[in-house]
Amino acid sequence: MGNAFVKQEKWDEAITCYNRAIELVKDDAIYYANRGLCYLKKDSLHQAETDCTEALKLDPTYVKALQRRATARERLGSLRAASNDLNEVLKLEPNNIAAKKQLEAIKARMGTKGSKSKSSPTSESKLFKDILKPKVQPKIIELPDEPLKKQELSALDKWKSGLGEDITVMRPVKKPPHLRSKRALKSIPIQEIPLGKSSPEKPLTGMKIIEIEDSLCQGDTNNNDSNKIKNRLEETNRGIKVKGEGDTKLTSPESLKLITDSVVTEKEICVHNLVPPVNSVQFMSEWKNLKGQGAARSKYLSIIEPGKIPLIFDNALESDVLSEILRILYEDKEKFSEKSITAYLKGLCKVKRFSALAMFLSTSDKQLLNNLLEHCKTVEKCREEEIHELKNKFEL
């Protein structure tokens, strides 16, 4: 087939055929020489020379390969190498007229017959000798040491370094892109500190201070008294108010409210600072940070646009993450009603290698999917064709 394409002067098709032939038979010089001819016709001279050289490695007496390499080298300007190839041709075939004419033309380009060209090996060797000739090292004269002059800093430099001031200068950290964090940026609340203070004023808490009687604070060796002190301190830490000897234990509502509010505030801040991910690295980093927080993970998933799911995960979606996403979609259907469960399922189907992930879905995952598809059909009024397509994608 390659030879037929050569006759039709279809060089690219012939090269394709010879590539396949070389893959199947690697020790045949003809295929390399024929492909070299095609490259020569396309003016791909370096590739033509390489193929002819490969052919000659397999068969050093291959005349056509020698002539084609000589032509490629001549057009590349390597006249001396081309003439060497033609001399080899004439040794093998003394009556080769084409080789004689080509050799005479090359000698004419190089100058008179037998004379050496300007780029002859001898002239090149002289040039290299001049370059490699050892240079005379200059004499090194040691000068007496001079006292170093202290360089005085300008007022601007002193201000930049904070010299003479009781402050700490914060300098920017410059890192190359490959060393920077891949996590999404988060907003951090900034607190104003009054001038002259090193920390912000703490807000008053609802904790009550309990005074302990003097008799209990003295270093009495009585074990009963020390146990009383220990018990009262433990009760104070639990938010329990102690009154006199009657030991009427009442839970402090202010303490309980303060503890509850602090926990709620931390969760609200965590959810409030969530940012939609751009890639799978950011998603997995945030997803691991929210481990054990079902509501926060549900919120994080709800701020992601369903249409961007294939771009975010690309080919990095894992089966356990897919199962967790399906469980969250099922448990918090109302949270995803605005963007619709259907849109999320379609986005997951478009992730690369999803067919392989669908094969590893567990029985419980498939049960969740059936319930989600029923929700899409009855509540979101999804068409029957779309439901059928999603079932095929998830291999239900």
Rank of each mutant, 00 (worst) to 15 (best):
N3K: 11
E13M: 11
A14M: 02
R20A: 13
K26V: 09
D28C: 10
L45C: 04
L45I: 01
D51E: 04
T53S: 15
T53E: 06
L58A: 01
T61E: 11
A82Q: 03
N84E: 13
L90R: 01
L92R: 08
L103Y: 04
K113A: 12
S115L: 06
K118H: 10
K118Y: 01
T122R: 09
S125V: 07
L127V: 01
Q137A: 14
Q137M: 07
Q137E: 12
Q137H: 06
K139F: 00
S154F: 00
S154V: 04
L163G: 00
I167P: 03
M170E: 15
R171A: 09
R171Y: 09
K182Q: 14
A184H: 07
L185Y: 04
I193C: 05
K202L: 14
T205C: 06
I209R: 09
I210R: 13
D220N: 12
N227E: 15
I229M: 12
I229C: 07
E235S: 13
D247L: 09
K249H: 09
K257L: 12
L258H: 12
D261V: 05
V263N: 12
E268L: 15
I269D: 10
I269K: 15
N273M: 09
L274K: 00
S285K: 09
A296T: 08
I303T: 04
I303D: 08
E305S: 15
I312K: 02
F313N: 01
V321L: 07
V321F: 07
I325D: 02
I325L: 06
R327M: 10
L329I: 04
D332C: 08
E334N: 14
K335P: 00
S337G: 05
A343F: 08
L345N: 03
L345W: 04
L345T: 05
R353M: 10
M359R: 13
S364P: 00
Q367I: 06
K377Y: 07
C382L: 05
N392F: 04
E395N: 12
L396E: 02
